[in-house]
Nucleic acid binder design. Sequence first.
DNA 1: ACCCAGGCGGGCG
DNA 2: CGCCCGCATGGG
Length: 291
Amino acid sequence: MIRARELDIKLSAESGQPLTFFGEFGRDGSRDTLSYPVEDGYIRIYAESAPDTKIEYDFWGSISSKEARKDIYDRFSLGLDMKSVYASINTDEFMDNAIKALRGMRITRNQPWETALCFTVSQFNNIKRIRGIISRLSERFGELRDVEGRRMYGVPSPDVLSDVPLRELRRCGTGFRDRYIRSVARAFALNDSFPELYRMPYDEAKSSLCAIDGIGDKVADCILLFGYGRVEAFPIDLWVKRVVERIYFGGRKQRIRMIHSFAEDRWGAVRGYAQQYVFWHGRKMGIGKLD
DNA sequence: ACCCAGGCGGGCG
DNA sequence: CGCCCGCATGGG
């Protein structure tokens, strides 16, 4: 059991983050459960009430209890002081409402390659379909973990996806993203998932990712934020763009560049957190929905 | 049927 | 640079 403050597991896992795409959600009595693959096994979390919570967990495979515990601790950033994050991003009434509505939602930290795959698939796509594509890719090309009668597939490795024929990828419903998936898989296989991106200066790290065919401004920021824990990354998808334009620019269209510099000025080094609250609260409120 | 989706690359001015 | 276009697919 792990005690945590300011943590809502369900919100953190379901708010369009990587766990939304390769995690499995369920119920255990009155509790929500989340299962996700890790190494050669998987972890299952039992979600208690938020925002101050107790995390119960089980794990299967060759990992130890200590490793499972550490995975959960790192994945949900339990060492991070959310009070100070909220102090930085609670800049106005909209953010105050977002934080009240979504208290405990964290930026999860996932494996870089799994994150890269999820957000490569995400482009010009919707959350439900991204889930389906990732799950079909995992079933066909991932490693099966079959423990105690429960089957779960791991996310396929970049090495495997590097050599899969494009038509086989497309058979999983990837559409035109097939060649991007291959390109990103090859880059991650060749560079051992870019371990230097954890510490490289943000601009430099982003340029490295944008050099890969299939990764642009938005996907690069998602990979840095959810894969490398770079909370200074501020991914701008169409929702974030519309919400920021509506709330902070009187509905006037702004360039992506402008929104990046606005976010940096307003929310500083933890603007990735601001982005996640803008994104999810904006969507839930229907702000930015087309008329 | 029609519209949309956690965008990107290429081509144009 | 900035803008515009096509891109596959399935759910609402």
